[in-house]
Nucleic acid binder design. Structure first.
Lengths: 246, 246
DNA sequence: CGGTTCGTTGATCGTGCTCAAGGCTAGTGG
DNA sequence: CCACTAGCCTTGAGCACGATCAACGAACCG
């Protein structure tokens, strides 16, 4: 059963939280038992949909956002493989946001029962879920700081570094290079900028030899420089190092 | 034991999630067994502090924020009586933000063990905690939308309406009137504005006969008008109406 | 009284938005 | 092979929302 981990981004993400026994891996695996494939730019759920299921992203890029009546859009997050979307919706009256695929994706719906049973069955699974939820919250907080108080340049740099770190954790980043199939419109809507201004910011970052984003691919040329610019500290993204954690 | 609820803002907040048995109220009450009083503007914990405890606010206004190296400050939330702060910090390497009192406050530290035991002991308590965490996340998402995509005027109106709704749930708002001991500097740092600009926005709202904020007191003169301006829908703040919820 | 905190206003500046266009590439159908 | 389209990226010119800098007023409190 250990080979569950070889292909599951969830297990990969949770590995550092281990050690995992085979039966626990089996419990984790139950989160991925059902699978759904979807093409690019397909809605998965909409704001206010009553939701009895969360979704584990198995592969592909996705996007969580809210629309405003004036046509504006705020991207909340870009869930990546190993991320679970919509847990909070299970405990509220419905989803607070819309969720869709940006690329072709593979999703595993997780029912409330599956989630709670998994957590009941194994305290390690419960820990992992709690960590995952807490981490998502930390990412959201950092996103708020980004949009509320950082300049467009710092904000963009910070966002790219966060993506790089998250992708590294699931093995989708190497030596400052990674695929990023998010166009400038979506990215601008995440950063609270217009696509036009973001384009200029990206040019600035490129001309400063810090990072290049082209054709859906990101190359970080000067990691330290970028980190200094953004005042980035990625500790909030990594599994906790504390011993005996709850 | 039922009089626990009479004075506990936590029980008041969770009432609509009921029905609660006496023993469950007792379990909830255990979250408030310890008490700490603090004066105004006292630090409760700082960013990066290792934290083994969350805090239930029993009375007074508090503030969660992050500082930036350039001296900037982003307020994440203003936890009110009945709100629990720092749960996510229990499951990460440390707190992701600073937490302090704005007024004299009464706090109940909640250890990780107390929190988890309370949830294990009663599924209603577990439900309530899950709802509370999910609601905090929904508030955070709305805050991000506010700062990222709404104009200063809409943003401010939305913020005031959210406060009014939250205060109503704990019985601290009546007929559009409530105390709000948050000065314009703190409020501006929540809204991603400067205090100077916020001051002008508040004047605009006052001159439009929508809402007045003066001397720590808010008077909403035209609730519908304010709601239309902000395109506010407070459903995310109320206890879920779904039956048989998890 | 003087000090401190908070609110208010004016003048000016600049980051990032708006509107408008054009270019590049891939895909499609003639 | 060449139009033609559709996304997406890029650039320019001008404007506006909100920031910055600089005071001053009001309330409170020692």
């Amino acid at each position: 059963m250990n080979d569950v981990g070889c292909h599951s981004p969830l297990v990969r993400k949770f590995q550092a939280l281990g050690p995992w026994t085979d039966s626990e891996l089996l419990a984790l695996g139950s989160f991925g038992s059902r699978r759904r494939r979807l093409g690019a730019h397909q809605a998965i759920f909409h704001e206010r949909d009553a939701s009895d299921e969360a979704y584990l992203v198995q592969s592909g890029w996705t996007c969580v956002y809210k629309l405003l009546p004036d046509g504006g859009r705020q991207v909340i997050s870009f869930p990546l493989p190993g991320d679970i979307v919509g847990i909070s919706g299970l405990f509220l009256d419905g989803a607070q946001f819309s969720f869709e695929s940006l690329t072709p994706v593979e999703l595993s719906p997780i029912s409330t029962a599956t989630l709670l049973n998994g957590a009941m069955a194994s305290s390690n699974v419960a820990r992992a879920v709690r960590w995952s939820v807490a981490r998502d919250s930390a990412i959201l907080v950092e996103h708020l700081v980004n949009v509320g108080r950082r300049s467009a340049l710092m904000r963009t740099a910070h966002f790219i570094l966060e993506l790089a770190h998250r992708l590294r954790l699931i093995g989708a980043e190497r030596a400052g290079e990674f695929a990023c199939p998010v166009n400038q419109y979506w990215m601008a809507d995440a950063l609270g900028l217009t696509a036009i201004h973001l384009n200029r910011v990206l040019r600035e970052l490129r001309e400063a030899h810090l990072v290049t984003l082209r054709a859906g691919h990101v190359s970080i040329h000067d990691y330290e420089g970028l980190k200094d610019l953004a005042v980035f500290d990625g500790d909030y993204l990594s599994p906790p190092k504390r011993v005996g954690w709850p």
